[in-house]
């Protein structure tokens, strides 16, 4: 089994109108090379990105999902934290970009249950706030909970440190963040790795993302930021 492809073949899988998950906590664990390649496909539009945040803003160069926004490739973003991202906030106030904010723990759990085949879950997060509006609630053991639904994507762009040709992957420190769960919750999963090894070089019990979730492995030796 060999899932390794070149970056262009991998990003060819992203189609106009897709929902695209992007791993990372800002740049830590973000598949920057894959996002950069997607940003060269200006004809791939009306995308919805699903990511913890929207990357840095105010840099002299465009970076992360902000590049896709500048290209006019995005219709909607689903994030937990936007920060003071200037370009995104301007696009939202002009009505060109739809913003959906999700509490971070609800965000990852919606992704986790999407990948695990679960139809919804009850959480105390957001009770009595705008997050509760329009949602079913339930009192369990005297505490109020909100029903939250799974969050799927067409494509997940994720990043690991080391992968083998079968897509088994390991991560460094906090770079795992949203990547493993996103890889379970999308129809097509593209994994960027810094280091590519042969099957057997990663100890089976050290694998953090089993290759069964991964469709394509892209080896990007160069660090991007």
């Amino acid at each position: 089994m060999n899932k390794v492809v070149d970056i262009k073949t991998a990003i060819d899988q992203v189609k106009t109108g897709d929902k695209v998950m992007i791993g990372g906590f800002t740049n830590i664990g973000c598949p920057v090379n894959l996002v950069d390649e997607l940003a060269t496909r200006k004809e791939v539009k009306h995308l919805t990105t699903i990511s913890e945040d929207f990357g840095y803003s105010g840099l002299p160069y465009l970076q992360g999902p902000g590049k896709l926004l500048a290209n006019g490739q995005l219709d909607e973003i689903i994030v937990t934290f936007l920060g003071s991202h200037k370009e995104a906030n301007e696009a939202i106030s002009r009505g060109e970009l739809k913003l959906t904010l999700v509490p971070q723990g609800t965000f990852i759990e919606r992704i986790r249950i999407a990948g695990a085949g679960i139809g919804g879950f009850y959480t105390p997060t957001g009770v009595g706030t705008v997050v509760e509006e329009g949602k079913e609630t339930k009192v369990i053991d005297g505490r109020k909970y909100i029903l939250e639904m799974p969050l799927h994507a067409n494509v997940a762009l994720v990043k690991c440190h080391t992968a083998d040709r079968m897509g088994n992957a390991t991560f460094r420190y906090t770079a795992q963040n949203f990547n493993t769960m996103m890889a379970t919750a999308a129809d097509i999963v593209i994994l960027e790795c810094e280091k590519l090894v042969e099957p057997g070089e990663i100890r089976p019990d050290a694998v953090q993302l089993p290759g069964v979730f991964v469709d394509y492995v892209v080896h990007c030796e160069e660090v991007a930021f």
């Binding site: 945040d53 937990t80 904010l101 509490p103 971070q104 723990g105 105390p124 009770v127």
Partner: peptide, 25 residues
């Protein structure tokens, strides 16, 4: 004991990040 810490109406929307989950548990 209610807390508001993530949004000033009419200002830039930052997002709640993990705050709502942290205080719920």
């Amino acid at each position: 004991g209610n807390l508001a810490n993530w949004m000033v109406p009419g200002k830039t929307t930052n997002g709640m990040g993990g705050a709502m989950d942290l205080v719920s548990g």
